[in-house]
Simulated assay, not measured.
Amino acid sequence: MAILVGGAVGVVIGLAVAYGVVLRRRRTKVLAARRAAEAGLRSALAPAADLLAACLAAGAGPREAADAVGRSVDGTVGVQLRRVAAELRLGAEPTAAWQRFGALPGARDLARCMERAGISGAPAVEGVSRIAAGLRASAHRTAAERARRAGVLVTLPLAACFLPAFLAIGVVPVLIGLAEGLMAHN
Rank of each mutant, 00 (worst) to 15 (best):
A36F: 12
L167A: 12
F101S: 00
V171R: 07
A107W: 06
R27E: 10
A85G: 09
R34L: 13
A85E: 05
P173V: 03
G106R: 10
G14I: 08
I131T: 01
A103D: 10
L135R: 06
G181K: 09
R149S: 02
E180R: 10
L52Q: 13
I131S: 00
G6V: 07
L163D: 03
V69R: 00
A44F: 04
I13E: 13
R136F: 02
M1W: 07
F166G: 07
D50V: 11
G10L: 15
G118E: 03
A137H: 13
A103C: 10
A165V: 15
A122K: 06
L110C: 11
A2H: 06
V125W: 06
R108V: 00
A103T: 06
Q99C: 01
K29I: 02
G91S: 08
N186K: 09
Q80F: 07
A97V: 01
E38W: 03
W98L: 01
A132K: 09
G181E: 05
Q80L: 14
R26G: 11
Y19N: 14
S43P: 02
A68E: 06
R71H: 04
E180N: 07
G127A: 09
G127P: 03
G7P: 01
L23D: 11
L90Q: 08
L156C: 12
V172D: 04
A60L: 04
L163R: 04
E93S: 09
P123F: 02
A58H: 15
R141M: 13
G75V: 09
G14C: 08
G10F: 15
R136P: 02
A150H: 03
A49P: 15
E38F: 03
E38G: 05
L45E: 12
T142W: 00
G7R: 00
A37T: 05
A39F: 02
R89A: 12
R82N: 00
G102L: 07
R146A: 07
L156P: 01
R141E: 14
V21Q: 06
Y19I: 09
A85P: 04
V152H: 09
A107S: 05
V30I: 14
A107K: 01
L90N: 11
S138M: 05
I131V: 05
V171T: 07
A111V: 01
L4N: 08
G14K: 02
D74S: 10
G78Y: 14
P157L: 06
V84G: 00
G91D: 13
I169A: 13
T28K: 00
I131D: 03
V73E: 05
G134Y: 12
R71C: 04
L23E: 15
R100S: 05
L135Y: 03
V21C: 13
P157F: 04
V84C: 00
V11P: 08
F162R: 10
R89C: 03
A184W: 12
P123A: 03
G181F: 07
V11W: 15
H185P: 06
G20A: 12
L31M: 14
R34Y: 07
R136Q: 01
G14M: 06
N186H: 15
S120A: 03
